[in-house]
Design a protein around this nucleic acid. Sequence first.
DNA 1: GCCGTTTTCGGCCCGACTGTTTTCAGTCG
Length: 576
Amino acid sequence: MTNKDVAETLTRVGQLLEIRGENPFKARAYYAAARVVEQLGEDISKVVADGELGELPGFGEALTEKVTELVTTGHMSYMDEVMEGLPPGILSLLDIGGVGPKKIKLFYDELGIGTITQLEQAAKDGRLAELPGMGEKSQAAILESIRQYHSHQGRWLLSQALALGEKVLAAVEGVDGSIRASLAGSLRRRRETVGDIDILVSTRSGPKVVEAFTSLDGVERVLASGDTKGSAVFAPGIQVDLRVVEEASYAAAQHYFTGSVEHNVRMRREAIQRGWKLNEYGLFDGDRRLDAESEEELYKHFGMDLIPPELRENTGEVEAASAHRLPSLIEAEKIKGLVHIHTDWTDGKLALEQVAHEVKERGYTYFVLADHSRAVTVANGLDQERVRRQWKEAERVEKKLSGLRIFRSIEVDIKGDGTIDFPDELLAGFDCCIAAVHSGFASSKEKMTSRIIAGIENPYIDILAHPSGRLLLEREPYAVDMAAVLKACAENAVAVEINSHPLRLDLDWRYVRMAKEMGVEFVVSLDAHDEEDFGALDYGIWTARKGWLEKEDVLNCLSARDFAGWLAKRRPQSPK
DNA sequence: GCCGTTTTCGGCCCGACTGTTTTCAGTCG
């Protein structure tokens, strides 16, 4: 039972409680608990086993008991209770925009609707419009939402959303009357996937900006258009929400709309404790607005340092900011060398020499060449003979481009039995060995965990690549005890990769934080296969920042010489 | 269902927009 499973169950219970019309704060308690579990940097089963569940925020007697049952037996009997009399799958209706718990209850009680298909049919038959509180417009809106649901499931990669978000932001900034504008929401916090795009703008003339926004190129459908808020679906189906505020409210609004919800709730409580009120219009002491030109000044009123958006997940950042102990987060400019680069020797697009030019032009002083090894046959993995030829080629290129160091590395495969697909004698010849799993994703958690740990324990392995194997929105991470894997990395001084590819962002930031606390070292790597991938380093940096990393935690912030020193220090003296 | 330097009971963030309503409920963030 993974943290994600537990979080999903708790969320479902909360939603069912809402549909049943129970105390909304009870439902909220379940959502809060789900969020805590989802953000947790360690396995929930371990927390349960250690008897520490009740110490988590939001976990009282009832939730501790229910989640303990869920984790130990795989089932929560309370779920049966809240499902009682409702069709399974009724919660899928929540995925339809404009449909919430109250409407679901109405549709079910009056028309027996329990699936999206039934909802669609009822809307087409005109039966929805006849219900109390419903009408033609609501019915049409639901049909449109269903159409959109079928065309896209509603979440987007950070990279997809950022590309559109920056374009719309630029357009909004250009509208006559707009003063300052910024991305907000989960996009500004650099979450790995986002559901929509939030943009904030301060202006002298609200309605005009909203009007210009809803008529921008690329708008497919306008969802809302008021004086201070506009909402539209842009090609390729991403919803963008625009909020308009007066200039005096800009900093508070930027804070408010950046979130997270949990961070905001926390900050509001901080305000209430001081006898103030915090909302999107400002920080108020009675009727008096406490001036803040920027978020930095806003936090200053609370005696806190500026909390970078990436950290605003209510996982201790408020306490750290109050104690002036926020980490000095890593920045992309601190990276000196690029790690985990593929070439056309295997499944990369660029020749080794082209890669070298690319790296140099971007201002880096070294790179870690890492093509696939023979086990990954689909990628034309290198055998022993081609490895030796590639070393020669690397040597030639290195001589040709002075001032650029090429570390001869390889992305070896951790096979099903935990052994590496190259013999130690060959591994010993590399400057650096990167190991990863490329097959058998469906194996059991126990098997996968011991397999990866065996790979980590190989004395020639320096870096563990994409530790969870996930492909965002495409493939779930394989079942693995990540805490045990990271512990093994710490004990064997094996660095963990933060893979910058927007589809991976693996290690997940929640585990980055946990690994750091265990003393694990990191590389922020590219896993580059083509020219475009060389521009993706920011994504890995944001993941590292969300995991509270500083430049000292990241090995490729070292100079080429010091990076070589790190490798040399951990290299076995002679092959076994 | 959780939580507590104002509280062990009574709060729990709160405002905008839409549609169906003659003053508000539901949804969303």
